[in-house]
Write a protein that binds this DNA or RNA. Structure first.
Length: 777
DNA sequence: AATCCACTTGTTTTT
DNA sequence: CAAGTGGATT
């Protein structure tokens, strides 16, 4: 421990060692912020604090995961897994589930994602007979979301003169009623949206001081990462939990605050000092990531912002090359240029593909980059876009699961009642919804007893409804007997989702099937993980609660290891790459046309640019296009104003010169290759359709078989050393997740019979034989 | 009730 | 340009 602490620089060390009172760590980009946090946690543990008394909050799943891994390496996985570490949303959903009855929920509450939220808002707007051209669901959503983030309940919202005035001026005076109805409907459906998780935590703590007391006493030390990204609701939670002991450490960088559109408030960092007046402020100013040029250039840019905490970020790394600036004639050529540069740099700098990242302001820009890289045969992977869990086929399966767990879940009900098509159309669903609204019942209540609600439907429809009800009821009964994995498998098969996707017979259908299988694999892994942790039968409900807050940013697949990365600047926060390309530096794109209005928003865009540049370790190249396809047609664009904000001494402006011209003269040729590419792509497509069909059939087999039965070794076998199945040391076994391995020894007896297995790729694992599905090879 | 077609519409970032 | 909506057709 001492050794680790000694390896820190003085300010890092001080920040780690100050544990008796509140600390505010202002951490410049690349200054070892995560290192301070992880070391601090390890230090606290070494001082004798129990891991379960430390609360560490992050902003993204990815950050939480990474920190967990790093701490695991320092103090061991077991200790690390006992820490309360995760995103605000995941930690407090966990607490809310435990305390659900205090706030009129059950612990099985559903979490509505933004899609669900928007759909429900649309429904309400329609029911209230409001014009959805005026009350745009997105606008209403963001309005309600900011209200929640500022801890305005519907009542308080309606009571606020200021808010009422704003709504009146924006021609949406009914928002207060929409908000109220929305909140009631969510509660009736046993559902919370993302913002509710924070709002209800505050309500819980406010209304039940004894509950707050409990958690205050539980958490002896609180750490918060990326504090500049917290909103008021989050800030207040931290403030309350740390209210008595003041053992709290927050880390942040005001220069990297880029989430104000989500209610993040830089003031939280400034307010921190007034909330905890005795707090010590530490500044981490040495950047270990980037060259001096990159750091200096980024500093010169951020200096143009008014509002910021004074700090002097510096680097003692090599001076490094200047920031490159290239212009292209079109967005198309911009892609070409970037692809060229990557290919060139890979050779001259001996760089791997994985050393490169292409950063853009909007996801839409990824397409054109994608095309350019593909043309040059450069492997790439794209982060973001729609996540795994947002795909239709996945949402469908999960909606069934949600409805099984929570019959009141309105959005899931609507999603699955006629998928796969079973002849229950909009008219019928409309009738059910009307009846439900009239009698203040849930959709499921109506479906369950159509006659009680005087549903006017013909016999055929009634039969179909009854069949659907039985289908779901059946799953509910199975839920107690089957593991989460078996249950989801049953859902996929018995609802007809599997056969529906097969029937599509297209490439997309194949991908969808694969995605569903991926989901099944995920459930299985989840079950195994839980079982190995000693939880006997992980329920579907447990899995759902975990999965509803998951984004798939953390799916680092093995085959994706050495590829060029493409992502939005927002999702690049916290990451670093040797070579960074920031593309699309044009007015109305970056800064976004929507942000030009206010100086505050403009400053946020500038911070975003700051984040982009400071991702780079060795080189950073900026590009812009003079014309770009927008709204279906080519539009001229001017270079971003931000380019002028960088001190020119750090810029190597190559925007006028050979590159551009060569590109221009070669473009007729490109049209040719473009046509060729299209032709060959078509051939490939039809080839893979037929090849896909075969694989398709094979893929679906496991879904259509009754139950995947392998010769599995398991169950209540006593006598140590050798099991009834012949499992003993020296035997080679196959594990679904860990692959092949050799049994080193057998331990324990009866239910506790364990095998210690040396796996080829995963190393030594101890598995409870009662649960681990092993096959003797 | 389902499918298809033509039309409109919007386009930042994410738990 | 694409996705999503609304209307007409089967």
């Amino acid at each position: 421990m001492e050794e680790i602490i000694n390896s820190l620089n003085p300010s890092q060390r001080e920040a780690v060692l100050h544990c008796d009172g509140p600390s505010l760590v202002i951490a410049g980009a690349g200054s070892g912020k995560t290192r301070v946090l992880t070391t601090k946690i390890a230090y606290l543990l070494s001082k004798g604090l129990y891991p379960s008394t430390i609360l560490a909050l992050t902003f993204t799943n990815k950050a939480a995961k990474e920190m967990k891994e790093r701490i695991g390496r320092m103090v061991g996985q077991t200790t690390a897994s006992r820490l309360w570490m995760g995103t605000f949303h995941s930690i407090f959903s966990r607490i809310l589930r435990a305390e659900a009855e205090h706030i009129g929920f059950t612990s099985d509450f559903t979490i509505y994602d933004s899609q669900d939220t928007k759909n429900l808002l649309k429904t309400i707007i329609k029911e209230m007979k409001l014009d959805d051209k005026v009350y745009k669901p997105n606008a209403v959503y963001s309005r309600i979301s900011s209200a929640k983030n500022a801890l305005y309940t519907p009542g308080m919202y309606a009571a606020s003169q200021q808010l009422m005035e704003q709504d009146f001026n924006s021609k949406m005076p009914e928002i207060r009623n929409i908000y109220q109805t929305y909140a009631r409907r969510c509660k009736d459906a046993g559902a919370m949206d993302f913002d509710d998780l924070l709002l209800y935590t505050n309500i819980l703590f406010h209304k039940h001081p004894e509950v707050l007391e409990k958690y205050k006493n539980r958490f002896m030390y609180i750490l918060v990462d990326e504090y500049q990204d917290t909103n008021y609701a989050q800030h207040l939670i931290v403030q309350q939990l740390a209210g008595d002991h003041h053992r709290v450490c927050v880390v942040g960088d005001d220069a990297q605050s880029i989430y104000s559109f989500r209610g993040a408030n830089i003031d939280n960092i400034l307010n921190f000092k007034s909330t905890f007046p005795e707090c010590k402020v530490f500044k981490l100013e040495q950047n270990y990531r980037s060259t001096q040029t990159i750091v200096d250039a980024a500093n010169s840019l951020i200096k143009k912002n008014r509002q910021q905490i004074q700090k002097n970020v510096f680097s003692e790394n090599e001076v490094g090359e200047q920031i490159g600036l290239f212009s292209a004639y079109s967005d198309y050529e911009e892609g070409y240029l970037v692809a060229n540069k990557i290919a060139e740099k890979r050779l001259t700098e001996h760089a791997d593909y994985k050393d490169f990242v292409i950063l853009y302001r909007t996801n839409a820009q990824s397409r054109i980059m994608e095309e350019a890289l593909r043309k040059r045969n450069i492997p790439y992977r794209i982060y973001g876009g729609l996540s795994f869990y947002q795909r239709k086929e996945i949402k469908d399966v999960l909606a069934y699961c949600r409805l099984i767990i929570n019959p009141k879940d309105e959005e899931s009900f609507k999603r699955v009642i006629n998928y796969p098509a079973r002849g229950i159309g909009d008219t019928t669903v409309g009738k059910i919804a009307d009846a439900a609204l009239l009698h203040n019942a849930s959709l499921w209540d109506v479906l369950n007893a159509p006659l009680d609600y005087a549903l006017k439907i013909n016999a055929g429809t009634a039969k179909k409804l009854a069949a659907f009800r039985e289908l779901i009821d059946n799953f509910r009964e199975l839920a107690s007997e089957l593991s989460a994995h078996e249950l989801v498998l049953a859902v996929v098969k018995m609802t007809g989702i599997a056969s529906d996707l097969t029937a599509e017979g297209t490439i997309e259908g194949l991908t969808k099937t694969q995605n569903v299988e991926e989901l099944l694999k995920g459930v299985q892994e989840y079950c195994m993980m839980k079982q190995e942790e000693g939880i006997e039968s992980p329920s579907l409900s447990d899995f759902l609660s975990e999965v509803s807050l998951a984004t798939d940013q953390d799916t680092d697949k093995e085959e994706d290891k050495n590829k060029v990365t493409m992502m939005t600047i927002h999702s690049a926060k916290g990451l670093e790459f040797k070579h960074v390309f920031v593309v699309g530096l044009e007015e109305d794109l970056f800064p976004s046309s929507l942000a030009k209005m206010s100086a505050r928003e403009l400053e946020e865009e500038r911070r975003l640019f700051y984040v982009a540049i400071t991702r780079a370790e060795k080189s950073c190249i900026l590009t812009y296009a003079k014309s770009r396809f927008k709204h279906g047609q080519s539009q001229m664009s001017a270079p971003s104003r931000f380019l002028k904000d960088i001190d020119p001494q750090y810029l190597a402006d190559q925007s006028i010169g050979a590159t551009g011209n060569t590109l221009f003269t070669t473009s007729p040729q490109q049209v040719n290759t473009e046509q060729q590419r299209k032709a060959s792509a078509y051939d490939q497509l039809s080839a893979s359709v037929s090849a896909g069909a075969e694989r398709f059939r094979q893929k679906l087999k496991p879904l259509s078989e009754a139950k995947p039965k392998a010769t599995t070794v398991n169950n209540n076998v006593p006598s140590a050393g050798i099991t009834a199945d012949g499992l003993q040391s020296g035997v080679t076994v196959q594990h679904d997740r860990f692959g092949q391995g050799v049994v080193t020894r057998i331990e324990g007896e009866g239910d506790n019979l364990k095998a210690i297995i040396q796996f080829e790729t995963f190393g030594e694992k101890t598995l409870l034989l009662r649960f681990a599905k092993l096959t003797i090879v």
